[in-house]
Lab assay of single mutants.
Amino acid sequence: KSAVKALFDYKAQREDELTFTKSAIIQNVEKQDGGWWRGDYGGKKQLWFPSNYVEEMI
Score class of each variant (00 low, 15 high):
Lys1Ile: 12
Lys1His: 13
Lys1Trp: 11
Lys1Ala: 13
Lys1Gly: 13
Lys1Ser: 13
Ser2Glu: 10
Ser2Phe: 15
Ser2Gly: 12
Ser2Asn: 14
Ser2Pro: 14
Ser2Ile: 15
Ser2Lys: 12
Ser2Tyr: 14
Ser2Gln: 12
Ser2Cys: 15
Ala3Tyr: 14
Ala3Gly: 08
Ala3Asn: 13
Ala3Trp: 14
Ala3Arg: 13
Ala3Met: 15
Ala3His: 12
Ala3Thr: 15
Ala3Phe: 14
Val4Trp: 12
Val4His: 08
Val4Ser: 05
Val4Pro: 02
Val4Arg: 02
Lys5Asn: 05
Lys5Val: 14
Lys5Ala: 06
Lys5Phe: 09
Lys5Ser: 06
Lys5Thr: 10
Lys5Arg: 15
Lys5Glu: 06
Lys5Gln: 10
Ala6Ser: 05
Ala6Thr: 07
Ala6Lys: 01
Ala6Met: 02
Ala6Tyr: 01
Ala6Asn: 02
Leu7Phe: 06
Leu7Thr: 07
Leu7Lys: 11
Leu7Cys: 13
Leu7Arg: 10
Phe8Ser: 08
Phe8Trp: 12
Phe8Glu: 09
Phe8Leu: 12
Phe8Pro: 01
Asp9Ala: 10
Asp9Cys: 11
Asp9Gln: 06
Asp9Thr: 07
Asp9His: 06
Tyr10Phe: 07
Tyr10Met: 00
Tyr10Asp: 02
Tyr10Trp: 08
Lys11Cys: 15
Lys11Gly: 07
Lys11Arg: 11
Lys11His: 12
Lys11Phe: 14
Lys11Tyr: 14
Ala12Cys: 07
Ala12Arg: 04
Ala12His: 05
Ala12Pro: 04
Ala12Met: 05
Ala12Ser: 08
Gln13Cys: 15
Gln13Asp: 08
Gln13Arg: 11
Gln13His: 09
Gln13Thr: 12
Arg14Met: 08
Arg14Glu: 08
Arg14Ile: 05
Arg14Thr: 11
Arg14Gly: 11
Arg14His: 11
Arg14Tyr: 09
Glu15Gly: 09
Glu15Asn: 10
Glu15His: 11
Glu15Asp: 13
Glu15Gln: 10
Glu15Leu: 11
Glu15Ala: 11
Glu15Cys: 14
Asp16Val: 09
Asp16Pro: 02
Asp16Gln: 08
Asp16Tyr: 08
Asp16Trp: 11
Asp16Cys: 15
Glu17Thr: 04
Glu17Gln: 12
Glu17Ala: 00
Glu17Leu: 00
Glu17Tyr: 04
Leu18Ala: 01
Leu18Met: 06
Leu18Asp: 00
Leu18Ser: 01
Leu18Lys: 03
Thr19Trp: 05
Thr19Cys: 08
Thr19Glu: 09
Thr19Gln: 06
Thr19Lys: 01
Thr19Ala: 07
Thr19Asp: 10
Thr19Ile: 02
Phe20Pro: 01
Phe20Gln: 00
Phe20Thr: 00
Phe20Tyr: 02
Phe20Gly: 00
Phe20Ile: 03
Phe20Met: 02
Phe20Lys: 00
Phe20Leu: 04
Phe20Ser: 00
Phe20Asp: 00
Phe20His: 01
Thr21Lys: 13
Thr21Ala: 11
Thr21Val: 12
Thr21Trp: 10
Thr21Phe: 12
Thr21Asn: 12
Lys22Thr: 10
Lys22Pro: 03
Lys22Asp: 01
Lys22Ser: 09
Lys22Leu: 07
Lys22Cys: 09
Ser23Met: 11
Ser23Gln: 10
Ser23Asp: 15
Ser23Val: 06
Ser23Lys: 08
Ala24Val: 08
Ala24Lys: 03
Ala24Gln: 05
Ala24Asp: 09
Ile25Trp: 08
Ile25Glu: 06
Ile25Phe: 07
Ile25Gly: 02
Ile25Cys: 09
Ile25Gln: 04
Ile25Thr: 05
Ile25Asp: 03
Ile26Leu: 06
Ile26Val: 05
Ile26Met: 02
Ile26Arg: 02
Gln27Lys: 13
Gln27Glu: 14
Gln27Arg: 15
Gln27Met: 14
Gln27Ser: 12
Gln27Tyr: 15
Gln27Val: 15
Asn28Trp: 04
Asn28Ile: 04
Val29Asp: 03
Val29Arg: 00
Val29Gly: 02
Val29Leu: 02
Glu30Ile: 15
Glu30Ser: 14
Glu30Leu: 14
Glu30Thr: 15
Glu30Lys: 13
Glu30Val: 15
Lys31His: 05
Lys31Met: 11
Lys31Cys: 07
Gln32Met: 15
Gln32Glu: 11
Gln32His: 15
Gln32Cys: 15
Gln32Asp: 10
Gln32Phe: 15
Gln32Trp: 14
Gln32Leu: 15
Gln32Ser: 14
Asp33Leu: 11
Asp33Lys: 10
Asp33Ile: 10
Asp33Glu: 14
Gly34Pro: 06
Gly34His: 08
Gly34Glu: 07
Gly34Ala: 07
Gly34Cys: 11
Gly34Asp: 08
Gly35Asn: 08
Gly35Leu: 11
Gly35Glu: 10
Gly35Phe: 10
Gly35Tyr: 11
Gly35Ile: 09
Gly35Cys: 14
Gly35Arg: 08
Trp36Gly: 01
Trp36Pro: 02
Trp36Glu: 02
Trp36Met: 09
Trp36Val: 02
Trp36Asn: 03
Trp36Arg: 09
Trp36Asp: 01
Trp37Phe: 05
Trp37Ile: 00
Trp37Val: 02
Arg38Asp: 00
Arg38Phe: 03
Arg38Cys: 05
Arg38Glu: 00
Arg38Val: 07
Gly39Thr: 00
Gly39Gln: 00
Gly39Trp: 02
Gly39His: 00
Gly39Asp: 00
Gly39Glu: 00
Gly39Cys: 05
Asp40Ile: 00
Asp40Ala: 00
Asp40Val: 00
Asp40Arg: 01
Asp40Cys: 06
Asp40Pro: 00
Asp40Trp: 03
Asp40Gln: 02
Tyr41Gly: 01
Tyr41Ser: 05
Tyr41Arg: 03
Tyr41Cys: 06
Tyr41Pro: 01
Tyr41Asn: 03
Tyr41Thr: 04
Tyr41Glu: 03
Tyr41Lys: 02
Tyr41Leu: 09
Gly42Cys: 12
Gly42Pro: 02
Gly42Tyr: 06
Gly42Thr: 04
Gly42Glu: 10
Gly42Gln: 10
Gly43Glu: 10
Gly43Leu: 08
Gly43Ile: 07
Gly43Trp: 06
Gly43Pro: 07
Gly43Asn: 10
Lys44Tyr: 12
Lys44Ala: 13
Lys44Ser: 12
Lys44Gln: 14
Lys44Asn: 10
Lys45Phe: 15
Lys45Cys: 13
Lys45His: 13
Lys45Gln: 12
Lys45Tyr: 14
Lys45Arg: 12
Lys45Glu: 12
Gln46Asp: 07
Gln46Ile: 02
Gln46Asn: 11
Gln46Val: 03
Gln46Glu: 06
Gln46Phe: 07
Gln46Met: 07
Leu47Arg: 08
Leu47Ser: 12
Leu47Cys: 15
Leu47His: 14
Trp48Met: 08
Trp48Asp: 01
Trp48Lys: 10
Trp48Gly: 04
Trp48Val: 04
Trp48Ser: 05
Trp48Glu: 03
Trp48Ile: 05
Trp48Asn: 04
Trp48Tyr: 10
Phe49Tyr: 02
Phe49His: 03
Phe49Thr: 01
Phe49Trp: 01
Phe49Met: 02
Phe49Lys: 03
Phe49Arg: 02
Phe49Asp: 01
Phe49Glu: 02
Phe49Val: 02
Pro50Asn: 06
Pro50His: 05
Pro50Val: 02
Pro50Phe: 04
Pro50Ala: 05
Pro50Arg: 05
Pro50Glu: 03
Pro50Tyr: 03
Pro50Leu: 06
Ser51Thr: 08
Ser51Cys: 14
Ser51Ile: 07
Ser51Asn: 07
Ser51Gly: 06
Ser51Ala: 14
Ser51His: 07
Ser51Met: 11
Asn52Cys: 14
Asn52Ser: 15
Asn52Val: 11
Asn52Pro: 06
Asn52Trp: 13
Tyr53Asp: 01
Tyr53Ile: 12
Tyr53Arg: 07
Tyr53Cys: 15
Tyr53Pro: 01
Val54Met: 03
Val54Ile: 05
Glu55Tyr: 09
Glu55His: 08
Glu55Val: 14
Glu55Ala: 11
Glu55Pro: 00
Glu55Lys: 09
Glu56Val: 12
Glu56Met: 08
Glu56Phe: 08
Glu56Arg: 05
Glu56Asp: 13
Glu56Gly: 06
Glu56Ala: 09
Met57Ala: 09
Met57Cys: 15
Met57Glu: 09
Met57Pro: 08
Met57Thr: 10
Met57Gly: 08
Met57Ser: 09
Ile58Tyr: 14
Ile58Thr: 14
Ile58Asp: 14
Ile58Phe: 14
Ile58Ala: 13
Ile58Met: 13
Ile58Gln: 13
Ile58Leu: 13
